[in-house]
Every structure is written in C-alpha cells, then in structure tokens.
Design a protein around this nucleic acid. Sequence first.
RNA 1: GGCGGUAUCGUCUAGGGGACUAGGACACGGCCCUCUCAAGGCUGGAACACGGGUUCGAAUCCCGUUACCGCUACCA
Length: 483
Amino acid sequence: MSAIHPRLRFAPSPTGYLHVGGARTALFNWLYCRKHGGTFLLRIEDTDKARSTDESTRAIFEGLHWLGLDWDEEVVYQGAQVERHQRDAHALVASGHAYRDFTTAETLERLRAEATARKEPFKFDRRIAEYPQAELDARLAAGEPYAIRFRVPEGSTAWDDLVHERIEFPNKDIDDFVILRSDGTPVYNHAVVSDDIAMGITLVMRGDDHISNTPKQILLYQALGAALPQFAHLPMIHGTDGKKLSKRHGATAVGDYQHLGILPSAMANFLALLGWSPGQDIEVMMRDEMIARFDEHKLLKKAAVFDPKKLEWMNGQHLSKLPLDDVLPRVVPALVAAGLTTDADVAARAPWFRTLLDLLRVRARTIDDLVRQATPFLRDAIEYDADAVAKQWADRPATRDLLDAAAGVLAPLPEWTPAAMEGATRTLAEVRGVSAGKIFQPMRVALTGLGVSPGIFEVLELLGKERALARLHAAVRRLGEPV
RNA sequence: GGCGGUAUCGUCUAGGGGACUAGGACACGGCCCUCUCAAGGCUGGAACACGGGUUCGAAUCCCGUUACCGCUACCA
C-alpha cells in the first residue's frame, strides 16, 4: 500500500504570512517524510498573480526555516508551469474528457441569477456548450475565447483517506468544472493535479477544507491516465472562540510567535499535538523524538483550538529541557537586540553567561521573560520594581538596618562563595533573631530590583562581590532618604 | 438549499465492545517543598452533544437529530 519512496509536498499560496495552520500542515508532511525516508517538497502556488507577492513567498521560506522544516529539492513555482497546465487541459479536450465552453462570464452570471431567483440550485448544463462541428470550427477560426471544462462522468468517486478512511461522492453532485480559463490560465484543481503528477507526489497531505475538491482531482488524475496518490486530510485549527483561526485571534503567523520569544522546537511540538497524539500521555518531545514517534495512523479528524497558554507552557518546557547550546543561539541575539550586551561581551565571558542563562531559563516561559530577568545582571543601574519594594521594604528603617548589616558581614568574606555567603547571612539572621527569609527577600530587591530571581547566593555570585556590595549600599542609601 | 466532514473535561487529548467509579496535559483552586519565582510532588472541581438501535454488555459499532466546519466560482 505505501509507496516505495514517498514524495510529499507542502503547497502554500503566497498571499500572506505563513499561517500556523499552514505551518502545521507543513510540519506533518515533513514529519512523515523524515520518519519514512521520503522527499519533502515545497511548491509555491502563485497562480493568482493579483494576490501573490514575493514578500509572502519570502515570509513562507523564513517561517519554514525558523521551524526547521527543510525541503529536499528546489522549490517549484506553480506560475512557471502554465504551459504544462495548458497542455494537459488540451490533452483532455483531445481525449474527450473535457470540452471547450464558449459561454461568457456574463451569461453564466445571468443563468446563475435566474436559478437563484427560481430558488433552484444552479447546475451547469453542458448542453449549452455543445455546438455542431461547423459552428465550433467557425468560433475557433474567429478566435473566440473559450474556457475548458471537465466532463464529469457518471458514477461516483471514492478514496481511502489516511485519516478519514473511505469517503465517497456521487459524481452527479459535481458540476462540469472549468480547468482552464478563457485567458489560458489554469484553475486551482487542475493546476494542483498537473503539478502533483509532474512532481511525482505519492501522498497528498493537506487541510480537510480540500476534501470536497478531492473527487474532482481524482477524476482529473484518472482522465490524465496518472496513478492516484494517497490522500490524507488534516483537521483545521480554530481560534479560542471555535471559529477558523484568523487575524482577529491575534497572532496567527509563525513569525509572530518567533517575535514573541517562542522557540521553534516548542512551536513545532505544540503544533504537532494539534491533530495528532503519540499516546502514552506523552506531551513534551524534542525534534528527534517527535520524528521517531510520528505515526500517520494516529492523525485525528477533529478540528483543534489553538491555545496560546499551552504554547507558553510548552515553550517553558523546551526552554529548560533543551541542551543549553541549543537555546543560546536563540537567547543571545535577543539580549543583544535589547541592548543589554554585545556578541563580543558574550564571547569574552562565555562561562558567566552560560551560568546566568542556565539559572534563568528554568523560570522563564518565553525568551522575552528571560531577557527581562537577565536585565539586572547586565546593567549597571537597576530599576526597582514598585510592588517588590512595597512588599519587601515595607519597614524602611528596619530594612535599611538589616541590609546594612548584611553588607557588613559579606564585605569581609575572604572568599566570595555561596557557602561563605550563606554562613555569614544565616548567622546574621540568628543574631538578629529573624528568619533568614527576612534578610534574603529585601536583599533580592536590593540586588536585582525584582521580587523574583534565582537563589540569593547564586545572584550574589553572579553579580560579583564588588557590584553586589555596591547595590546593597545603594539600597541602604536609598532607604535612608525620605520617601 | 445540495453534497461532504466532524462531535470525550473550558482547551489539547487517551480511549478503537467488558480493564471506565472515563486516564493524562494546559488553565483554575488547595497543600507540600522553599530565601522569592519557576520547576517538581500531592490534591480538588471539570467531559463521553441528543435520541434510537445492535449486543449479555457501548465513550467505543449502526441509524437519525442537532451543532459546527468545508465545498457548491472562468478563488486558492
């Protein structure tokens, strides 16, 4: 049943950014190929010149690159295939599977309007396109424009969908559809089939909004005398309100998530779980594991709702579970972009940066979170968070006294090690008769300006003795000032 | 309207006739851990759309209803 060498394609039309729905379709195609040793192809469906832009094409490439979905052969541009589309269409005319239709758009519109007025469904009557041979020749000779319509045969068309199993359509419900417009350009269904045949596609995996197109395409394959590929129709992705995902739902382009500080592996992991489940309660998967576990037979039929909250959680998981070396290339540029450091600085203090980011990443959900938390460690001056100050520095004189004392016991330490710092501060707490937390919390605010940070001794160590003491003194000074 | 598709906690899902007092995850609440947060552990509430069948037995199979989605273009 399965082809010897699977060839799959992702075929977006470049009329916008790379949508998360499209990204997920691409992901499943890619996963299938990587899992089964297939070839993953990319085809840009730019037949609609009015809506297609190079910018969109670039956005699609970028989105795919970012997600790590690499294609195996040169990109195919559908717009460059029109000659073949025309050839195939005329071949169908020659073989009797299609016919020329001289009916003008205006006439069609009128007939449709009339049918609607009569409350009848409009159905194209192929008899209005039939002319005696002599008249046909005359119209042709006169150079009258005509569209080419497919002659839908009697019977019914069915296929065994990889996710839906058997689907069957009575052919009587399918109108004779246009495959080549009167201006010589191909219509979608025809272009797709012609291209898929030419590209040797063995499995067409796409959104289930194409289910109704499939019988038309199958008919085309058969008329063209080509072998049928397998079909797999993936469910759609909806917004939180259950409607098809659109701009109204906020971020829907993969690029949006990239800029929101999401890691590509987390995005891929999250997307893969929309419409597929590896079972065994497995959720978090790194790339290789995802490929290993991917199983097209476990694809789901039901549309899924895109939940940004879960995406964030997933990102937090990846942020802390990925090898540090895989997350640094994503985080360092963000730090540089925020003006907190430079590549040269990172290179010069690599071990320090690794320690810092390793400590920070477990408590961040997005790269943006991480950048925010790294700020006090990379700037000379810190900003005090009002809430943290209000909470931890409520009793200003007492806090001032405690911080002063803390600086006092830390300053003489011969070695700036966590063990030494902990000993000194805990002893201080004992002497003062307060819990250790009563010292650590105000210190945290003094050292980072924030109410949240890694362990206090890790913070002290990361900051270094000089800067740490300076911040404690600054806090003491600040607490001495009138409010 | 016609045709097609779908239907388990708010959300993502496990489940493919008895193992289901329906499991996990996100989110939400509580507790533990603890110098804060995150992570982690424990824990609470929360679902088989409805109605008929088939069967000794149905979340699982069949039919219908309802809801939602898609196609019905010389759009893709």
